[in-house]
């Protein structure tokens, strides 16, 4: 079972003088769930993922935090202060940024991650071959990672993180630039990842989440407006129409 994620009394600001992104924030994501963090732009979704991945503290040296973040059996006070990869993997919003640009094939782009982790050549080759297969990328293995469609590039970016087998997989708005077919493929891939990995992804529309997630959190203005199961979320959805587009769903 993947780790649970609990934030308690979390306060976070990027600079001492800036408005806090979170203050006394709480969230509780059960281990092994596929959790959607929904909410409008500026609600704090991306910041939350950056905090959990360790990127927030490690990249924003001026950031000020308070509270407690527990991932599995490890408690970070106040927040993880270094990148927790490969235990925690974060897939950024823009796949073209996540793809390093220094490798000329999809295969070696994915392998790059494993090289960073110091794995031997044979282990790497086997792992990469397996992930290419799982993510339906085998036929693209020798293509240049930048000469792919948006959906394909998104799958490569995801594969480059999942290949390291993180216990907690974080994805920042993975579905929003994709057409319907690529979205369905991505939903299939996320559903195929076993509960040994906890998945947390963000979105500002509920559609993709309703196809993929079993746990829902709604953020608004840096506070948790809703936390619950899919059924509970569907029941409450009509009251969120100022925060989420609900046409055609409710």
């Amino acid at each position: 079972m993947g780790p649970s994620v609990v934030a308690t009394d979390l306060t976070f600001r990027y600079f001492a003088a800036s408005r806090p992104v979170f203050s006394a924030f709480r969230v509780n994501i059960p281990g092994g769930s596929r959790c959607a963090i929904l909410g409008p732009a500026g609600a704090g979704k991306t910041t939350l993922l950056e905090i959990l991945s360790g990127a927030a503290a490690s990249h924003y040296k001026t950031a000020i935090a308070d509270g407690r973040v527990t991932i599995g059996d490890k408690t970070h006070i106040p927040i993880p202060h270094e990148v927790l990869f490969p235990r925690v993997g974060l897939v950024l919003q823009d796949p073209s940024v996540q793809i390093s640009g220094i490798r000329h094939t999809v295969r070696s782009e994915i392998e790059f991650t494993l090289e960073n982790l110091g794995m031997g050549k044979d282990v790497r080759a086997a792992k990469v071959a397996r992930i290419l297969e799982r993510f339906s990328l085998t036929h693209l293995a020798d293509r240049h990672p930048y000469r792919l469609s948006g959906g394909e590039m998104q799958r490569v970016a995801l594969a480059s993180i999942v290949v390291a087998e993180p216990d907690l997989l974080l994805l920042d708005e993975p579905a929003n630039a994709l057409d319907e077919r690529s979205r369905n493929e991505l939903a299939g891939i996320l559903r195929s990842i076993s509960p040994a990995t906890t998945i947390v992804f963000t979105d500002y529309t509920p559609e993709f989440a309703l196809e993929t997630a079993d746990r829902f959190v709604l953020l608004d203005n840096s506070t948790t407006r809703f936390e619950g199961t899919r059924d509970e979320f569907l029941t409450a959805l009509s009251t969120f129409s100022a925060l989420l587009p609900t046409e055609g769903i409710v």
Binding site: G39, P40, A41, Y204, T205, A242, L243, L244
Partner: peptide, 10 residues
């Protein structure tokens, strides 16, 4: 409308 969340959509 891509990348616009609900408040901006409205």
């Amino acid at each position: 409308s891509v990348h616009l969340s609900q408040p901006e959509r409205l």
